[in-house]
């Protein structure tokens, strides 16, 4: 489904802030894989997702989605293949537009936008049904401006938008990190529901090791712009947080720096 071949990306080359964020990264996802991604700060997790999404172009390497080479495709054209949810709830939705208008925008992802109606009556009914799945009471607020919603509501809506037009690949960039624990759990639950319902190939970054173990069929750990651990199937089911920490210390020769990974 997704194939990353030997990706390299250096930010601010030739300056004091030079940072090699991707260092020969390769990864191959199978159809229907739900992969959780963990790693310390600066490991290259978000950089990997941004490389796939096309926020900028990689320095070297190739990105294939479903066999199509998208390495040189601009962000807005790659969007046809991708559903994305960001860490910041403000990023994924248009605050000054209505809930239904946001959904209508997402519904047209990957399609030409011409002078047809921006939203039809049939769509409104469809969205109402879909919003019920979230269980947040948004189905009665179709014409509310998204800016009025809470962070959790916005993330849930973004998730719905990302999957409204079934994507070949769903990219979740710590999409629960900015939420309180209870809300985060709810959004993760919705994520699980939608991913398994639509059998979506998914890459989910998380800082929470428990979540990384609990969700998905495959787990990868990144460090210094490379994948240092790739566990799937039965082996992943048996994983514990302790195992992951041991693996991390073994690979890096240092203590895991982030307490929230343990405590979360």
């Amino acid at each position: 489904m997704l194939e990353l071949q030997n990706l390299y990306k250096t930010f601010n080359p030739g300056t004091i802030n030079q940072k090699t964020a991707l260092n020969g990264l390769s990864l191959k996802l199978n159809d229907g894989d739900f992969v959780t991604v963990i790693g310390g700060n600066g490991a290259g997790k978000s950089t990997m997702l941004n490389a796939v999404a096309g926020t900028w172009f990689v320095d070297e390497g190739k990105i294939l989605i479903d066999g199509t080479d998208v390495t040189k495709l601009p962000e807005y054209r790659r969007a046809a293949y991708l559903g994305r949810v960001f860490q910041d709830p403000m990023t994924g939705t248009a605050a000054t537009m209505e809930i239904q208008e946001n959904l209508a925008l997402a519904k047209r992802r990957g399609k030409p936008r011409l002078l047809r109606k921006g939203i039809t009556k049939a769509e409104r009914e469809e969205y109402q049904e879909l919003l019920k799945i979230l269980g947040l009471g948004l189905e009665s607020r179709l014409t509310s401006k998204v800016g009025l919603l809470s962070g959790g509501q916005r993330q849930a809506l973004t998730l719905l938008m990302a999957t409204l037009q079934k994507p070949k690949l769903l990219l979740l960039d710590e999409h629960t990190a900015a939420l309180d624990p209870k809300t985060a759990a709810k959004v993760l639950e919705i994520t699980e529901t939608i991913v398994s319902r639509d059998h979506l190939t998914t890459l989910m970054i998380t800082h929470n090791m428990k979540d990384a173990i609990r969700h998905g069929n495959r787990l990868i750990m990144m460090m210094d712009g490379k994948i240092i651990l790739d566990i799937e199937g039965e082996e992943k089911k048996k994983l514990t947080v302790r195992d992951l920490l041991d693996q991390f210390e073994q690979a890096s020769g240092e203590q895991f720096a982030n307490d929230s990974a343990l405590l979360g």
């Binding site: 807005y76 248009a94 537009m97 208008e101």
Partner: peptide, 19 residues
Amino acid sequence: CSLRATGCNPNMSRAQGIN
């Protein structure tokens, strides 16, 4: 609508396939 989205949130717009 895509124009309005562009002004409101360009990142979201590109993620939704808007040029």
